[in-house]
Design a protein around this nucleic acid. Structure first.
Lengths: 285, 285
DNA sequence: TAGCGTCCGTTTGTCCAACAATCGAACAAG
DNA sequence: CTTGTTCGATTGTTGGACAAACGGACGCTA
C-alpha cells in the first residue's frame, strides 16, 4: 500500500512545470507521471502478465483491492475499467472479476475499427489478403483435420443455399476463410489476417447487386479450395485461393468501384466484452 | 440525458433472473444488460466512430459530460477510462481529453501481449514472418522513396557499428523491418505483421550468445535486401528477405533451442498512452 | 518586447460516505 | 427436486468535497 501512495505523492511533488516558450534543447526527459488509477492498472496488469495472477483466477473484491493498494475504491475502480477494456480482466456471468487473456475477437474488432478510422482502402486490404489467404490455405492443407473438413463442407452447403435463395452469404464467406485459418493451428496467423478479413469480405455485399454471378463464382471457388484441402494439396489450395481473392478485385473493377476509396464502416458488436456475439457486418459506401 | 437514464432503468427492471438448473432449451437470448458506465462508453464511442465527434476534437469536461448523460461524474469517469484504453480518447500534454484514432503501436503492443499470454511458439511467429517479411519487401521495392532508402542506410550503418562493438542490435533490427513495412504505404500490412515482429526479432537476443556470427550474417542480409530495394527489384528483395528469415530459424536450430517452446515475455512499455516511447525489448527464455 | 511572477476560474484526480440492486449460498417449504 | 426466503458480500451508482494543476489574463521589469 505504501508503495503506491509513495509513488503517487512523489509524482505530485516532482511535477515541476516544464511549459513556457519553445524549449531550446531537450535537456530533460519527460517525467513519467501517472495518475493513481493508472498505477493501479499497471500494477495489476503486471501481476497478470508475470503470471503471479493466473488467468481464470478471481481478483480480490474492489474494497480489498483498494485497501491493499492504499487507494480509494473509486480510484481502484477506474483502474479496473482500464484493465477491463484491455481484456486482461473479464466478468464471469454477472459480476465477479477474474483474470483472463485477451480474446482474439476483441483484438481483431479493435484493430478493425482502427483500420476503418484510418480510412484504409480496399486496395490495402486486398493487397494483404492476396498474400494471407493463399498462405493460410497452403498451411491448412497440411494440417487440417477431418472434423474441420466436415465443417467446411457444411459451410459450403449453406453458402450454396444462401446463394440459391438470394440471401446474403457474407457471414458464411467470412466463416469459411476463418475456419481455414484456424485449421493452420497458428495463432499468429489468425491474428494477422483477421482484422483485414473482417473488413474485406463484407465488401462483397457492395458487389453482389452489381454482379449477379458473384455468388456462384464464390461457391465454385470455395469448392475448389475445399477439394484441394481435402486432397492435402497445399499448392493447389493456395493457387485456388489466390485466384479467388484475385477474382474479388476483378469484381470490384467490373462494378466500376474505385478501389482506392476508404472501406466503409464496420458495424459489428460495439463492445468487446459480452453480448452481441454474431458478427453482423455491413459495408456502407 | 433522459435517453440514458431510461435505457439504464429499463435494463434494471428487465433483469429477471434466468438462473436455476440446467436450461433445457435456449428459448431466450441472453439479456444485454450493461452497467451505466458501459453505456457511457458505448455512447461516446459511437459518437466518435460515426464521425460526429471528429478525431482531434476536445471532449466536454467530465462535469458537462456527466450532466449531459444524466449520470454521476464518477460513473462518467469510469466510462472515460474505458474509452481511454481503447485509444479512442487521449490526453493532450497533461489533462484535456480529446477524441483520437487508435495508434497502431497501441494495437500492436496489445496484440503482442495477447500472443505472449497465449504462449505462441517461435514456430508460429516464424511461419508467419516467413510470409510477411518477404511480401512487404516485394511491395516496398516498388514504392520506397529515396528518403526511406536513406533512413534504411543509416540504420544499416548503425547496426554495423553495434555488431562491431558487441552491442545489442535487436532494436535496430526491428526498426529495419518496420521501416520496410512502412515503405509499402499499406496500413493493413503494417498492422498484420507488427505484433509478431515485436516478438520474433527480440528472440535474436537469445541466439546471439550461441552464435557469434549471427550479427554479421544479419548485417549482410540487411545489406542485400537494401541493395535490392534500392534497385527497385521486388523479386530480389523478397528473395533475400526470405533467406534472411529462414536463416533466423536455422540459427535457432543450430543453437539447439526448441522452436516449439512458447516465446518469452515482451517487456515493452506497459501502458498504451504516453511515456516510455522507446521500445526496450527483452526476450526471456 | 520578451520573460517572469501572480492571481483566478476551470478541470482533473482523489477521497469519503452511503445506499440500492444483485449475487451466492444456505436453508426452509412445497 | 424445484421453488421461495433470508442474509452477508460485492458491485453499481450517487452525492459532495477538496487539493492540485492547468490556462490564461494581467501587470511588472529588464
Amino acid at each position: 500500500m505504501s508503495r503506491n501512495a509513495t509513488s503517487r505523492d512523489e509524482a505530485r511533488s516532482n511535477s515541476a512545470r516544464q511549459g513556457g516558450g519553445a524549449v531550446s534543447e531537450p535537456r530533460f526527459a519527460k517525467l513519467g507521471i501517472a495518475p493513481a488509477y493508472r498505477v493501479v492498472f499497471e500494477t495489476i496488469e503486471e501481476e497478470i502478465l508475470s503470471g503471479r495472477i493466473q488467468p481464470g483466477e478471481r481478483l480480490p473484491s474492489e474494497t480489498d483491492l483498494a485497501e491493499q493498494l492504499g487507494v480509494n475504491r473509486s480510484t481502484a475502480r477506474e483502474g479496473l475499467r482500464l484493465l477491463e477494456e484491455t481484456g486482461l480482466v473479464r466478468r464471469e456471468e454477472g459480476r465477479r472479476l477474474f483474470a483472463a487473456i485477451p480474446r482474439q475477437e476483441d483484438l481483431s474488432s479493435r484493430a478493425t475499427r482502427a483500420l476503418v478510422l484510418q480510412q484504409v482502402t480496399f486496395r490495402e486490404l486486398w493487397e494483404l489478403s492476396m498474400v494471407t489467404e493463399p498462405s493460410v490455405s497452403r498451411l491448412a492443407a497440411e494440417r487440417i483435420s477431418s472434423d474441420q473438413i466436415a465443417a467446411l463442407e457444411e459451410n459450403l452447403a449453406l453458402t450454396n443455399d444462401a446463394v440459391a435463395n438470394g440471401e446474403s452469404f457474407t457471414q458464411l464467406d467470412m466463416d469459411f476463410h476463418s475456419m481455414i485459418a484456424e485449421a493452420t493451428g497458428n495463432r499468429a496467423w489468425l491474428l494477422a489476417r483477421e482484422p483485414a478479413a473482417l473488413l474485406l469480405f463484407p465488401a462483397m455485399d457492395v458487389l453482389a447487386p452489381h454482379l449477379p454471378q458473384s455468388g456462384h463464382r464464390l461457391v465454385e471457388a470455395h469448392g475448389k479450395v475445399l477439394a484441394a484441402l481435402k486432397a492435402g494439396n497445399a499448392e493447389l489450395a493456395g493457387e485456388w485461393m489466390r485466384k479467388h481473392i484475385a477474382d474479388f478485385r476483378r469484381g470490384y473493377d467490373m462494378a466500376n468501384i474505385d478501389i482506392d476509396l476508404p472501406i466503409g464502416r464496420f458495424d459489428g458488436p460495439s463492445n468487446a466484452n459480452g453480448r452481441g456475439q454474431r458478427a453482423e457486418t455491413r459495408s456502407t459506401l
